[in-house]
């Protein structure tokens, strides 16, 4: 196989968008994983499926309705967790199924639009347009700047809410900010891996990086590295062998996770 594929402009767009999404998902995912909110990405993604169906039925660009629905769902999850005595995982489970249910009913009512739905379920990174790429890059830039400016506060409220509150950190506002950024990240990433595999990008590189026993910044950088590696290698391999990019990307990151587990159990990494 030659390097010819690197000259295609659709491949440029796919790789650039893919790298941006990889960075975004691993950064936001790290906070979610550490807050024991690993399935939050999944819940938002599933609820955005309802938003996509809504958009397709109404003839609106489906990602716009998905952004709307996912942000509303993110707020609902946070509100439920704060106000009522329902645990985070239970509220995530409720939302996860509601999104799919709404989506299925809408699809049923409109007589089914299978082809479009498939590309949202499983991603279509090779079909990303120039406009999509610009949108992905801008959102990534904005979110990363916010995280860089606030990461010590975000880390503190993630580590221990009560202590952070006592230090005068606006914990509630930061909680909303995190889920808000997670909602945007999820919908932005749908084009890369689709609704069904998004939480893999949030969770697997971070869980892998945490095993290396490093501090916060190094863990974040390791996770970004694993994420970019899986996405770039995944896109290239999938094109060369004509297989699905989403599945390939996720399998590669699972491979890195398994490899790290292997290194760790062989005693080459400290057990802590």
């Amino acid at each position: 196989m030659s390097l010819e594929i690197l000259t295609f402009s659709f491949m440029h767009r796919a790789l650039i968008s893919g790298v941006a999404i990889a960075i975004l998902c691993s950064v936001i995912g790290l906070f979610l994983v550490l807050r024991r909110y690993s399935l939050f990405g999944d819940a938002i993604a599933h609820s955005s499926f309802g938003g996509i169906a809504l958009g397709l039925m109404a003839g609106v660009y489906p990602l716009w309705t998905a952004y709307g629905v996912s942000l509303v769902s993110a707020l609902i999850i946070t509100r439920i967790k704060e106000k009522y005595d329902i645990s985070g995982d239970a509220s995530v489970a409720v939302l996860l199924s509601s999104g799919i249910a709404v989506g299925l009913v809408i699809i049923g009512i409109s007589g089914g639009f299978t082809i479009d739905i498939f590309s949202f379920l499983f991603g279509s990174i090779l079909l990303v347009s120039a406009n999509d790429t610009i949108l992905i890059l801008s959102l990534t830039g904005i979110i990363l700047i916010i995280v860089l400016l606030l990461y010590r506060q975000l880390l503190y409220s993630t580590f221990n809410e009560e202590q952070a509150k006592v230090s005068g950190i606006p914990v509630e506002k930061l909680n909303y900010l995190i889920v808000f950024m997670a909602g945007i990240t999820v919908v932005t990433s749908i084009q890369l891996v689709g609704v069904l595999l998004i939480s893999a990008l949030f969770v697997i590189p971070n869980v892998t990086a945490i095993m290396y026993g490093k501090g916060f910044k190094q863990t974040a950088l390791l996770s970004i590295f694993f994420s970019i590696f899986s996405v770039v290698t995944g896109i290239l391999i999938s094109y060369i062998f004509d297989i699905t990019p989403a599945g390939t990307i996720v399998l590669l990151s699972i491979g890195l996770f398994a490899g790290t587990l292997g290194i760790k159990s062989s005693g080459l990494l400290s057990k802590n």
Binding site: Q153, F159, T219
Partner: peptide, 26 residues
Amino acid sequence: GYVPQKPMFEKNFPATVKDIVQMGLQ
């Protein structure tokens, strides 16, 4: 400055001593 009784956190939380002391600082 407040020192809690026994702060609860995950055993493998990826933060070093320095990270912890710097958390929340501007």
